[in-house]
Design a protein around this nucleic acid. Structure first.
Lengths: 200, 200
DNA sequence: CGTGTGTTTGACCAGATGGTCAAATATGAG
DNA sequence: CTCATATTTGACCATCTGGTCAAACACACG
């Protein structure tokens, strides 16, 4: 019985999710108010709640909408490709996401630092399964002697932490490097680091 | 004219700061309430405010009290020591802090992700100066050919991100590695990674 | 143009939250 | 023990916040 969304509904839902991303990524869930989101979306608070049941509804809609985009780069890691090339390509995709979608990165960071109360199940389910699968791929590469024998789990943590650092701690990075674009140096450094770790 | 604190004052101030650390590190500043802090400190809300002027007062007292501990490991980096040894020792100290003081790490992470509204000046001042000083040390080591020629700034970011990741994203790390202590593998991985990057 | 449906909002409410205050209670120096 | 001072708290207040509701408005379709 679900009617397909009208033009206006699509436009407003998109505006609300955009505003929610802006606000929630900066202040976290509890630190944000509906008035802030409404203001950022350019509409009244009751109108927000005409499109989404509650504050929580906006937030969880955002989280689940973004989760797929967030996992996609790792899914693209190809067991048939060249090992070092594949891993570096993955790291570059992740870094590019930090550069172009820092708000999404900070949204997840806020959520996870505060104990992941709303996506803990996804972390322990979908995410863990995906990581386990790719860890198996890396282990096969290692067994064949094609890359060095580092812990695949910690290798993945290395890529996550290094790339997300530039988005999540952007203020700190720019406090240290006020006169340059951190992402240029980061890309080069990331390449060299992974080369150094992975070369057998 | 400042009277030295009595026994009771010392005890209660410590209790409040401990409670504040517990609560603020989990929910961030805006996400925490004075009632939560009072409850965790085992006293009434008005009594909290007898010792600290405001919620903000507790928070900023915490931040500035912890900042020194946070910068100390980097200060201890010794220009006269063996380069690779010194850098790895720094990374290990940082990792140990993430392991033993994860709440402090998350407190800073929350603050910085949300734009560091209260410690931006410290980042651009004290922290930047300290980092610049140590970067100069690393550059001298590199000029002497004693370590590889990586960007010193990004090397430091690497150490920060890798070590703090295990504290700040603890929930995610443990979701992926439910059956082991992540810090054991992390220490080994960190050593190997830095060896690989730094060996000329 | 008129009518039914979808959209928007001003006014409002209940509960939470940061902070105040006067009164009660504990403490310790003489 | 006594009293001045330090400590503690119940009751309270103003503001903020998530959410509701009825009324107003816009719009498409006959």
């Amino acid at each position: 019985m679900a009617k397909s969304d009208t033009r206006i509904q699509k436009k407003n839902q998109a505006a609300i999710l955009g505003a929610g991303l802006e606000v929630f990524s900066q202040f976290g869930f509890r630190g944000s108010t509906l008035d802030q989101v409404a203001e950022a979306a350019g509409m009244s608070k009751p109108n927000l709640l005409y499109y989404f049941k509650s504050k929580e509804g906006i937030y969880t809609a955002l989280l689940s909408q973004l989760l797929n985009d967030w996992l996609e780069p790792l899914q693209a890691l190809d067991a048939e490709g060249d090992p070092i090339e594949q891993i570096i390509a993955y790291a570059r995709r992740k870094l590019a996401m930090s550069q172009h979608y820092p708000r999404e990165s900070r949204l997840f960071a806020n959520e996870i630092i505060q104990g992941a109360p709303r996506i803990g199940d996804v972390l322990r389910g979908e995410l863990k399964d995906l990581v386990d699968e790719k860890v198996a791929v890396i282990r096969r590469w290692q067994a064949a002697g094609r890359i060095a024998d580092v812990s695949p789990y910690h290798l993945i943590f290395t890529i996550w932490s290094l790339t997300q650092h530039y988005a999540d701690f952007d203020v700190q990075v720019r406090a240290i490097l006020p006169d340059e674009d951190p992402f240029e140096g980061a890309a080069l450094h990331l390449d060299r680091t992974l080369q150094a770790i992975l070369t057998p």
